[in-house]
Design a protein around this nucleic acid. Structure first.
Length: 741
DNA sequence: AGGACGGTAGTTTTT
DNA sequence: CTACCGTCCT
């Protein structure tokens, strides 16, 4: 077929692999999406598989859409029967259909993290657990951790007081969700996995239907995902997974790249294909990437290569402080745009934590340049947005007391905390959802619940109850937009948003955006709209902007590519992050994160760090990231700040003379040359046969130390026999004083 | 019911 | 140093 001519031999092998388990290990930029989409097209076009017999699973909606779009471009066939979506959306679809077997009914709502935390707080209050001793967020994390491993509350190994608390909250949390006819994100996967494992009828139904299962980003699967795939593949065994262990960066969410190894054990006769040709980056970028990632164990080594040529060396800049570092980045980015004609939209600045974006933003603002910030404030996280969505959710599912609590007094209708607490308490005592009681109160004094609290309070509740009843009665006849407009109007939400503050306008505009989103749903009813709100994050809402530089976290960068990439903050405790330092597994993940960042670059890559950074309190003096020490010096190009320093150099170091190392750094990489001093002779920092200690490799002897170009390099033979070459100025080496006899 | 205050924590966040 | 949360006070 003609479009296979554009594929390389390994890609063709993957696309046309025989039935059975196939594992494609795809390096960054090796065309894994192409392989996946061509495989689908091949199955339909050549193997005459019906679209409805194919299941394609991804992690993000964006990826799902991309794959669908590209498959449509490859085949003529109508794809409407094909199941294609994220793990969560596929599970939701299955669960709604099979709700008879579940503790919730098919119109269950999906609780997001916000809701989850509210539930945890509620449960903790009920159990008399002090939120100051156990932070609700932390407890929720523990619960989610257990759920990700498909554990039950009583599965907790140790019985520390905290674990006991987690157990009790977990138990109650789960009961609360069921009472609210709600599931959380984890439940979508867990319920599905269990259902398929325990119910032969359901398992066979789906396992029979899906003759081919294709999975993207397989290294990011967690226990329930792995297990449910296993069940779905239990009849035909045609499971085609694509992934890359080196790009697994969601361990903390339960993802376990060991599933890649597990796959090969569990599915005998797996065809394994490595995609090593990279179509994205230049060789220098790939070499740096490889130098960094090859230090990780438990992975399939890949030898990435490119036919794009060497390209430029990877640039390395060391700022005096993080401000200068940020300034260097912004000015260089602008320079690339103006003199090297790299479009701003092809430039990205990546960092470990969101907080780091501020420094960069300040510089952009100072230079009056636009930038695009990815992911900081989430649209769906806005209070007013959550409020209006909660209204819809309550109407859709009056048993959802979390939403009810959220909106019952927003805007204020004189239903105070006391009244709400009484209502919820009363509801719990007769084991009914608070929503049902509200609806019943709409009947006035004939309601059996009328007497349960003081007249004034009950009247106001009844007021709200009759509103709610009205909305519930029309919800299936009206389109989502119309219902939402009706609600907003009746509760005067616009007035509520637009107090005279500036944010007031913003708030209302956000609400209008929700209305626009709702308008896309033509069918009457709320189901489709709410499902989408729950399962479609705003990751894909981020607008393209070709004329602005993109600022984003390394996590958010996964899957993207840019002509020029800056990685900001290559210091210990930043990347790797301080929280990861004491755990080797976490450190490996930090390394992968760095690797993901590096491999986003097509042509230009800048790594930057600073000798000091603003910490929580004052100034922190930094150590260079250990990852830098793993990059051979000949791949790097030290950079000086070529712009006039924008701030005065008033930070004299008053304590003692700088170490040779500081002099070295000054000389090589900082913008301020040593003041009017004659250029110091090239220091020989590590004389041959010096005993040295490396931060990660231990002790050894200096074998060679030379200055090539502007770089001092040092070669060390370690006691275990390994020989390493470092960039002298940044290698975490210290000289071990010789014992004088 | 809203504002002022104090305490405390402060990664990453596909769904 | 902030930013956010919870509490208390008005």
């Amino acid at each position: 077929m003609s479009h296979y001519s554009s594929l390389n031999p390994q890609q063709i092998e993957a696309v046309t692999a025989e039935n059975g388990p196939v594992l494609v290990l795809a390096g960054p930029g090796s065309g894994k999406t192409r392989v996946l989409t061509h495989r689908v097209a091949y199955l339909i076009g050549e193997k005459h598989v019906q679209p409805y017999q194919i299941l394609t699973v991804t992690f993000t909606n964006k990826a799902a859409r991309e794959i669908e779009k590209r498959v449509r471009g490859l085949v003529e066939t109508d794809l409407s029967g094909m199941m294609m979506g994220t793990f969560h959306s596929v599970c939701a679809r299955i669960l709604r259909r099979e709700a008879d077997y579940l503790p919730v009914s098919s119109n269950f709502v999906i609780f997001d993290t916000d809701d989850q935390e509210r539930v945890v707080k509620l449960c903790m209050a009920d159990l008399n657990l002090d939120p100051k001793i156990y932070r609700p967020g932390g407890i929720l994390n523990s619960i989610s951790g257990l759920k990700n491993d498909m554990r039950q509350p009583d599965d907790l190994q140790s019985k520390s007081p905290r674990d006991k608390a987690v157990q009790r909250v977990f138990q109650r949390y789960q009961e609360t969700l069921v009472k609210n006819n709600a599931v959380d994100f984890d439940d979508l996967l867990i319920y599905t996995a269990r259902l398929l494992e325990e119910n032969q009828l359901v398992r066979e139904k789906y396992a029979h239907r899906f003759q081919h299962i294709l999975v993207d980003e397989f290294q990011d699967t967690n226990v329930p995902q792995y297990r449910l795939l296993r069940q779905l593949a239990s009849i035909h065994g045609n499971i085609f997974v694509v992934g890359d262990e080196d790009q697994s960066i969601y361990r903390w969410r339960g993802a376990d790249y060991h599933n890649v190894e597990r796959f090969q054990q569990d599915y005998s006769g797996t065809t394994k294909i490595l995609l090593e040709q990279n179509y994205r980056s230049t060789q220098f970028v790939l070499d740096v990437a490889r130098a960094v990632i090859d230090r990780n164990l438990h992975r399939t080594r890949k030898a990435l290569f490119t036919e794009r040529g060497d390209g430029e060396r990877v640039h390395l800049f060391v700022g005096r402080d993080d401000r200068q570092e940020a300034e260097f980045i912004c000015r260089t980015a602008i320079k690339l745009r103006d003199t090297k004609r790299v479009p701003a939209g092809e430039i990205a600045i990546m960092y470990r934590t969101n907080a780091q974006s501020r420094q960069l933003e300040e510089q952009f603002i100072k230079l009056k340049e636009k930038y695009r910030l990815v992911g900081a404030l989430r649209f769906y996280g806005r209070r007013e947005v959550k409020d209006v969505i909660s209204y819809l959710r309550l109407v859709h599912n009056p048993a959802d007391s979390i939403s009810l609590e959220r909106v019952i007094n927003v805007p204020q209708r004189k239903i105070g905390d006391k009244t709400v607490a009484d209502l919820l308490g009363y509801a719990a005592s007769i084991d009914q959802p608070a929503g049902s009681i509200l609806l019943s109160l709409a009947d006035g004094e004939t309601s059996p619940h009328w007497q349960f609290m003081p007249r004034a309070a009950v009247t106001r509740l009844a007021d709200f109850g009759s509103r709610l009843r009205e909305w519930v009665s029309v919800k299936n006849e009206m389109k989502a937009v119309d219902l939402l407009s009706k609600i907003l109007e009746e509760i005067h939400f616009q007035d509520y948003c637009q107090d005279e503050s500036e944010e007031g306008l913003d708030r209302w505009e956000n609400v209008e955006e929700v209305l626009r989103l709702a308008a896309e749903y033509e069918e009457p009813g709320l189901d489709a709209f709410l499902e989408n709100l729950a399962l479609v994050g705003d990751q894909d809402t981020l607008p393209e902007s070709p004329d602005a530089v993109t600022l984003l976290t390394l996590h958010a960068a996964k899957g993207l590519e840019f002509g020029a990439v800056f990685i900001y903050g290559l210091d210990e405790k930043v990347l790797p992050h301080s929280r990861a330092l004491d755990d080797p597994e976490e450190l490996e993940e930090e390394r992968r994160l760095f690797y993901v960042g590096i491999t986003r670059a097509k042509d230009l890559l800048y790594l930057t760090r600073a000798e000091s950074r603003l910490g929580y309190g004052g100034v922190d003096y930094t150590d260079p990231s250990r990852f830098l020490a793993d990059i051979p010096a000949n791949l790097l190009q030290p950079e000086k700040a070529t712009f006039p320093t924008a701030y005065s150099d008033n930070k004299q170091r008053s304590w003692g003379s700088p170490t040779w190392r500081e002099q070295q750094d000054e000389m090589l990489w900082t913008s301020t040359p040593a003041k009017s001093a004659p250029p110091p002779p090239p220091p020989e920092p590590y004389p041959v046969n010096t005993r040295v200690r490396h931060l990660t490799y231990g002790d050894g002897w200096v074998e060679q130390c030379g200055v090539d170009g502007s770089d001092a390099t040092v070669t060390v033979v370690f006691d275990d026999g390994t020989k390493k070459k470092f960039l002298a100025s940044i290698a975490p080496l210290t000289i071990i004083p010789r014992k004088t006899g």
